[in-house]
Each structure stands twice: as C-alpha cells, then as structure tokens.
Nucleic acid binder design. Sequence first.
DNA 1: GGAGTATGCTACGTTTCACGTACTACGGGA
DNA 2: TCCCGTAGTACGTGAAACGTAGCATACTCC
Lengths: 106, 106
Amino acid sequence: MARRKDDVAWSDPALLILGSLVSGPKHGYAIVQDTEDAVGITLGPGTLYAALARLEQRGHVRALPEEDRRRPYEITAAGSALLAQRLEAMRAFAVRGLTQLRTVQP
Amino acid sequence: MARRKDDVAWSDPALLILGSLVSGPKHGYAIVQDTEDAVGITLGPGTLYAALARLEQRGHVRALPEEDRRRPYEITAAGSALLAQRLEAMRAFAVRGLTQLRTVQP
DNA sequence: GGAGTATGCTACGTTTCACGTACTACGGGA
DNA sequence: TCCCGTAGTACGTGAAACGTAGCATACTCC
C-alpha cells in the first residue's frame, strides 16, 4: 500500500494501478492522473514504474506497443482476477471492521 | 500490508492488528490467532511485534500491565479513529473497483 | 519423569518496495 | 528562446514485511 510517511498504509500502488487499468489500457502518466482524480493519491514516478514493472513481470499487466513515446499497459485476465479477489477481501474486511467498530464503541 | 511473497498486498499488518483489538484488548499471540481465524493470514512474530511496537510508539495502541508473561495491548481512541478512517477508505475503494470490474468485463 | 507440544515473546538477518529527487527528452505556446 | 506540460529513466534511502532461530514456561500423557 501507498505508505503515507509515518502512517498506516491502506492502499497498495499495485492495486491502484490495476484499478485504474480496469477502465482501459493506459500509459504511466495517465495512470497517475487517473488515481489522482479517483482517490486523491499521487504516485511518484519511482513508485509507479517500479510497480508497473513488477506487475508486468508477474503477468498481471501486459505492455502494449509503444506509441509516440508512450508505453501503454493493459490489465491481463490474471490481473483482473487478482484485483477482484483483493477487492472482495478488502471489502469484506472493511465491512466487518466497521460493523464491529459501531457495535463496540457506542 | 501483509505481503504474500511474490504477490500484491491487500492488507497491512498494522490494520489487521487494530482490527483485531477492536473486539477487546489482546496480547500478541491472541492477535495472531484472531487474524488467522478472521482473515486466514498468519502474522509471524517478527511482523507482529515490530508492527505492535510502531503502533504503540505512534499512540494507536497502548500496552496494558503485563500479566503472566503476556503483554496485552488495547486500542486507543486515536487508533480507533485511524482504523475507522482507513476501513471506510478501503470499503469505498473496493466497492468502486468491484463495480467497475462488473460493468467493464461482462 | 522425560518427551513432546503449545504458549509467548525476543533477536536478528534478508529482501522487498514505497518514495523522493534529479535528470533526460520532446513538443507547444508566449 | 524560455518556460511549461508530457513522459519516462535512474538511483539512492529508509521503512518494514517476513522468516528463522532461540528461549522460557507450562501442560499433557505415556
């Protein structure tokens, strides 16, 4: 997850990237802007391209032919499956936690 | 987040710990078993106690008097607030992502 | 009563990776 | 020509996730 300095993380750059690629192939810079708009988190280039490289290496995204010095990536089936699984786990965990928070501290 | 080797993270040990402490003060070993039962993730001692130390240092948990070589911790108000905020963000992110996954890949 | 097992934690080393910063390069204004 | 936006590379640093080993107590149970 994207660590906020001294703080507890809640999101992983890889997850943000996969989430952004669901709506279609994008190149690096477009992913940055997309996640900025969507969740207000700005991925630095070091974070972004390193994470993209790992995702590609693990078969979760695929590089498309470079066009005009842009390097677009698209999510693979494995990436989609992984994302779905993680999101569902996150959702379940969050919902359970929030419910407990409400019942325990009235 | 609890990284699974070669894999994308989805959860942070600190978040798992806070989540476990919501239902009451626990010592380290009990937290391990709790998160095993709840989410199927086993925190190793290195991960667990290091994360606990950081959480205490940042005021998100508080150490209770040691009893019978057990070192219980309880969540603080700040910890609860942080957890609630993170869980809500996680939930929102997960729901948005899942919705998009459904609409995009029919 | 010794062996085995569960509990509970410490100590330490390795490796991954998030993040920042600096840099290159190209194109379009003003 | 200089500045700004776009697009990506290169690299260093520090945090922290994770594994493993070790140690002590305490409990079966044969």
